[in-house]
């Protein structure tokens, strides 16, 4: 597959947008400006960027508890995201959802999800709607290596294959579910081995390489668009920070050496190196993009800070859809 300079720049842009957003969110969290649970995507950017760059705006994505990267990758509005993470009225969910429920249905991002594995059946439902309508829209299901052990995930994957739905299953295999290594919870070396059992083609890609993710997704999406059913992509990746929050506190479930090893394969450093070597971008151009994204993120932080907390009177809004009132 030929990868144009535009694609490389696009992947790079999506990844630094995610990285800088997440670094800023982590700081706010450590500063107690962000309540609740925060699951950062830092380290895994190549997956969301590579997948989302291969999608059309109308394609849907189903997400996880680690969902900021998916939304930023799909083009999420950084100020609205930051405000939501801070529990503010101008946030994506009016402060009702927070990090674990952030969503933008206009971007066809079907929502982060606090229940591991629960996003899979929902995304499969979107894939069904696509088939039902006869359009060629595709639904992508993001999920962790831990999530494949949930019944709901298994049911969804089987159903997608049985009904030949236009879905792509993207596993973000970061080798841990919270503080437990995958080797303790699975007897197979590669998650993708499951794909055969569902009757889906499956591939393993380097989840630290956005180009590899982009290529694999492009193929899987083309297959789904053509009506040939779902596929499975296992992205081998790594989260740099703790499962929740930033620094690992208490029980040390992985070694510094392991973390450092993965950081030597950083997705952003990698693509910048390649673009410089191939003359796709100059260092100046990279610096300019970085500065612009940092400014956007800073602006998002200020927006979040300045947004008011929701009015207490909104507490009971949106429990039900009120007939005739389409809000």
């Amino acid at each position: 597959m030929e990868i144009t300079n535009e694609v490389l720049k696009d992947l790079h842009y999506r990844m630094i947008r995610i990285r800088f957003f997440e670094e800023a969110a982590g700081k706010l969290f450590e500063n107690s400006e962000m309540p609740g649970f925060l699951h950062l995507y830092v380290g895994e950017e190549a997956v969301a960027a590579g997948v989302c760059a291969a999608l059309r705006p109308d394609d849907q994505i189903g997400s996880t508890h680690r969902g900021h990267g998916h939304l930023v990758g799909k083009g999420g509005d950084l100020p609205k995201m930051m405000a939501e993470l801070m529990g503010k009225a101008d946030g994506y969910c009016n402060g009702k959802g927070g990090s674990m429920h952030i969503c933008d249905l206009d971007l066809n991002m079907l929502g982060a999800n606090g229940i591991v594995g629960a996003g899979a059946p929902i995304a499969v439902g979107a894939a069904f709607a696509n088939k039902y309508r006869g359009n060629d829209t595709v639904a992508v299901v993001f999920f962790g290596d831990g999530a494949v052990n949930i019944g709901a995930f298994h049911e969804a994957a089987n159903m997608a294959a049985a009904l030949q739905l236009p879905a792509v299953f993207v596993c973000e295999n970061n080798e841990y579910g919270e503080y437990t290594p995958r080797s303790k919870t699975m007897a197979i070396d590669d998650v993708v081995d499951r794909a055969a059992g569902y009757g889906m083609p499956g591939v393993i890609v380097d989840g630290m390489d956005s180009v590899a993710v982009y290529e694999a997704t492009t193929q899987a999406v083309a297959r789904a668009r053509a009506g040939h059913g779902p596929s499975f992509i296992e992205c081998k990746t790594y989260r740099y920070y703790n499962h929740h929050g930033v620094q690992i506190m208490g029980f040390k479930y992985r070694t510094d050496e392991e973390v450092d090893m993965w950081k030597t394969r950083d997705c952003i450093e990698g693509i910048e190196r390649d673009m410089l070597a191939q003359g796709v971008m100059t260092q100046d151009e990279i610096d300019t993009i970085r500065a612009k994204v940092q400014a956007d993120v800073d602006e998002a932080v200020e927006f979040g800070r300045n947004s008011p907390f929701p009015d207490v009177d909104t507490l009971m809004d949106d429990v039900y859809t009120v007939a005739g009132a389409n809000s």
Binding site: P35, G36, G87, K88, C93, G95, K96, G97, G98, H101, F309, P310, V312, T314, L315, M316, V319
Partner: peptide
């Protein structure tokens, strides 16, 4: 608690 899901924002949760 009132008949709604638990809200995220500390202000709403405090009222809840």
């Amino acid at each position: 608690a009132p008949f709604s899901p638990v809200p995220f924002s500390p202000v709403l949760e405090g009222a809840y």
